[in-house]
């Protein structure tokens, strides 16, 4: 399972410029400028002006609809939830994501159990619960790629630890990109960092602190992990 970015450039002036990355399964942090744009490209929501994105060798824009079925995406402002029960909500979204009717309820209950969420009205959910159910939603149809835009901002330490521990496990089976403005808080969980800079991106299979020091050195323009 490989997600490959070939010279991806987007925006004028460029938000992403010449991004070259090869990502295998695992939990990867994304920090720096242009995080949301990078994730939107990865979710096939925004098409790069130049360059290509390949999933297992196929250009995702050859058949973006098929690709999107394999992606779970949690945008930054995922807090707006309808005041309905949690199982009902996940069943509904499961239906939209093509889960067959006979499996919708069990899948919804399974996701709630995994994320230790109660089945009650979403209006009563705390900030941490809302983030977890947003991730649960993205996982309903078992995607190969999970893209999370700043899911830990606004969580207290306990909630953040719970969410990151869930993601560490989930990353065994898929590629997870976790964009964050709190890199040091996610450092203990991610296997490496995609550091976005004004030109390109740098991938480091190391802690945030070491990565931060590394990018100042010349000669890093791409990464493979």
């Amino acid at each position: 399972m490989l997600l490959t970015w070939e010279n991806v450039t987007l925006g004028a002036p460029a938000v992403l410029e010449g991004v070259n990355l090869v990502l295998r399964r695992g939990l990867w942090g994304v920090a720096g400028l242009g995080k949301t744009t990078l994730l939107r490209c990865g979710a096939a929501l925004t098409r790069p002006h130049r360059g290509r994105l390949l999933f297992d060798g196929d250009d995702i824009w050859d058949d973006p609809v098929a690709y999107r079925w394999r992606v779970g995406y949690v945008p930054q402002d995922a807090e707006e939830l309808p005041p309905v029960g949690a199982v009902q909500y996940l069943e509904y979204l499961g239906a939209l994501k093509g889960i067959r009717p006979q499996y919708q309820r069990s899948r919804a209950s399974q996701m709630l159990a995994y994320f230790a969420l109660p089945d009650r009205s979403l209006a009563t959910y705390s900030a941490g619960m809302k983030r977890r159910i947003a991730v649960a939603t993205a996982l309903l149809n078992d995607p190969d790629i999970l893209l999370l835009d700043d899911p830990i901002t606004g969580l207290d330490p306990e909630e953040r630890i719970n969410l990151l521990n869930c993601l560490t496990q989930l990353a065994d089976e898929r590629i997870i990109l976790l964009a964050t403005s709190l890199p040091e808080e996610a450092d203990g969980a991610v296997q490496g960092w995609v550091m976005l800079r004004s030109k390109g991106a740098h991938l480091h299979a190391d802690s945030y602190r070491s990565s931060f020091q590394d990018v100042s050195r010349p000669g890093h323009s791409s990464g493979r992990c």
């Binding site: 159990a113 995994y114 230790a116 869930c166 089976e173």
Partner: peptide, 13 residues
């Protein structure tokens, strides 16, 4: 704030 280990179920869905 010790609340003990997280009440997270085992096994990945």
């Amino acid at each position: 704030m010790d609340t003990g280990p997280a009440a997270q179920s085992r096994g990945v869905p």
